[in-house]
């Protein structure tokens, strides 16, 4: 069962307390300074993260660049501003878990059909998850995630997705699904939220954004000819 490890990790986490977090964060931070400067040149815009530490920022930039890479089909998640989008989301009620019912008792062993049953909110998932993953990378490769080659990063992301990494502090699938969900959101949400810069996500798939008037297009079997527009009137 591929989920076994994640399962144990989840239980382990619940047995520990949140007191472990600051230590991990500090450790992660030490590695970060060099990594951040390495990741910086790929950034299109000098956004200064409010939630993410330098180490976390390096991870997020590196990971989303693999999830939605820049390639022959156009700009990727980094160019679209997805890291900024995520950082901003983590400062909202959503990031703090204030949109969720978060009363105890929590249940680490709940069957997946019951959805999220851990105490972790999005901010925790990133903070704890990135530290745990970077620690794992350090111990296996002597480098943090952001310093690995793209092929190695892809391999790790696949393992995270499949629940094959034992991160101890949280199920690896949780970190992956949080990151991938937010990456898609940042790639496809209206640019007022900080991502989808230049409407690149919408242009990729052919979504016209906030046009929202198709009176003359309802029953045609035709490619919709107009470029997307955003809420603030930007055209792609």
């Amino acid at each position: 069962m591929p989920d076994d490890k994640a399962f144990n990790g989840r239980r382990d986490f619940l047995r520990k307390t949140l007191a472990v977090i600051p230590a991990i964060t500090v450790a992660g931070y030490g590695v970060a300074t060099t990594v951040a400067s390495q990741a910086a040149p790929t950034l299109q815009n000098p956004y200064r993260p409010r939630f993410f530490t330098a180490a976390e920022w390096a991870f997020v930039n590196a990971a989303v660049a693999r999830l939605i890479p820049s390639d022959a089909n156009g700009p990727g998640a980094v160019e679209a501003g997805v890291p900024e989008f995520i950082d901003r989301q983590l400062e909202t009620a959503y990031g703090h878990g204030n949109l969720w019912y978060m009363q105890a008792p929590f249940s680490a062993d709940a069957a997946p059909e019951f959805g999220h049953q851990l105490k972790l909110v999005p901010r925790d998932i990133y903070r704890i998850g990135i530290a745990a993953l970077d620690r794992w990378c350090q111990s296996q490769h002597g480098k943090v995630f952001a310093e690995l080659e793209p092929a190695g990063q892809d391999d790790l992301l696949r393992q995270l997705e499949g629940g094959h990494l034992d991160l101890q502090d949280l199920p690896s699938t949780l970190l992956f699904s949080q990151l991938w969900q937010n990456t898609r959101e940042g790639f496809f949400a209206d640019p007022i939220h900080g991502g989808n810069r230049g409407l690149v996500g919408w242009k990729l798939v052919g979504f016209p954004g906030a046009r929202a008037d198709f009176m003359d297009w309802v029953d045609r079997n035709e490619k919709y000819p107009f470029p997307p527009v955003s809420i603030s009137g930007e055209r792609g």
Partner: peptide, 29 residues
């Protein structure tokens, strides 16, 4: 269907990466 929630890809399409991007481009409309 809007792309955050409404984008579905054919069976077997890669779940992320360049392959996902290609599949998203081909499938959405």
């Amino acid at each position: 269907s809007k792309p955050i929630r409404g984008l579905t890809l054919p069976p077997g399409a890669p779940s992320w990466g360049s392959g996902w991007k290609q599949a998203a481009k081909d499938a959405y409309t």
